[in-house]
């Protein structure tokens, strides 16, 4: 796979469940070796997108490529893709050691030695029954199952949602250390945007089944600024959110290239602030067509 070939490329993916749209016109391209944060409110289509990429849900529109090829019957397709869903699917009656043996038996590429070492390093008792492990340990074990397969692409659906802060941190450490060694491409969905902001370098933001913002995190942050200035003057760039207090306005704007804002005090934004502004923008947009117009102008292509 060459460097400029996308690890994941989707073209107009769509999925309907009965009468509701789960995903529509979903198009983005993720370069290899990136850690991509997938954010959006509940029901925005994050899980549907991940399940489509994992081969568990068939889209009714569009197409996609993983690691440079279209997956399907007779192709290697999903062999190098690992997916962890929200419910941490594990055999609860198995011991930790039996779980490892099952993972090795089910996956030709499973690195048993690495998995065993990592579990021991994390303080696991290999004889303990999976069902009696803490939630954090179960997630760790499920992640080790995924990572032990040495995937080129790892899809994680809210892996830290049920965990306390310590278990979260420990899971993120494990993930990043392994990803750093293997150059794995990762897509991770989460509501913990500030946590994602620590380690994601790519973003896909979904609301109401559509991609509203996608691209390299540094580039996205560089094209957004928080401006503080006089309420009556009009700010430069595309205004995403605006709050006025007395004579002072605080405005989040987006602009390509250098932002020239005389009379305004410009500050950089962080990922969380930017994401929340977009979520609010599309949550507030009662008029669907107005929101769609904003999408066209606000989408940043990588």
């Amino acid at each position: 796979m060459s460097d400029n070939q996308a690890a994941v490329a989707t073209y107009g993916l769509g999925k309907r469940y009965r009468r509701s749209r789960a995903l529509s016109e979903c198009t983005f391209s993720l370069p290899p070796g990136r850690i991509c944060g997938l954010v959006g409110p509940n029901g925005a289509g994050k899980s549907t997108l991940l399940r489509i990429l994992a081969g568990l849900t068939v889209p009714d529109a569009g197409s996609f490529e993983l690691l440079g090829e279209t997956p399907g019957p007779g192709r290697s397709g999903w062999r190098r893709v690992a997916y962890l869903d929200q419910d941490r699917p594990l055999y609860r009656r198995f011991s930790v050691a039996e779980t490892l043996r099952a993972a090795a038996a089910l996956n030709a590429t499973f690195d048993f030695g690495w998995a065993r070492r990592t579990l021991e390093d994390l303080g696991f008792d290999l004889h303990q029954t999976v069902g009696t492990l803490s939630g954090g340990q179960q997630t760790q074990l499920a992640l080790i199952w995924c990572l032990g397969r040495r995937p080129a692409l790892l899809l994680l659906d809210e892996p830290t949602s049920a965990l306390d802060p310590l278990a979260r941190e420990s899971l993120v450490r494990l993930l990043l250390a392994t990803v750093a060694e293997n150059g794995t491409t990762v897509i991770v969905s989460s509501h913990a945007v500030s946590e994602l902001g620590q380690f994601c370098d790519f973003l896909v933001l979904l609301t109401r089944s559509q991609v509203r913002l996608t691209g390299d995190v540094d580039e996205l942050l560089a094209s957004h600024r928080l401006l503080v200035g006089a309420a009556e003057s009009s700010p430069p760039g595309t205004v995403l959110s605006s709050a006025t207090a007395g004579r002072q306005a605080t405005v989040l704007v987006r602009s390509e290239g250098e932002l020239f804002a005389p009379g305004w005090d410009a500050e950089p934004v962080d990922l969380e602030r930017m994401v929340v502004a977009y979520l609010r923008l599309y949550a507030c947009a009662e008029d669907e067509s107005a929101a769609l117009d904003a999408t066209t102008s606000a989408r940043v292509r990588s």
Partner: peptide
């Protein structure tokens, strides 16, 4: 190493 840094300060390997 990159791996040591990301495991310690939880940042993206590409950043290191």
């Amino acid at each position: 190493s990159v791996r040591e840094v990301v495991a310690e300060v939880t940042i993206n390997p590409n950043t290191v």
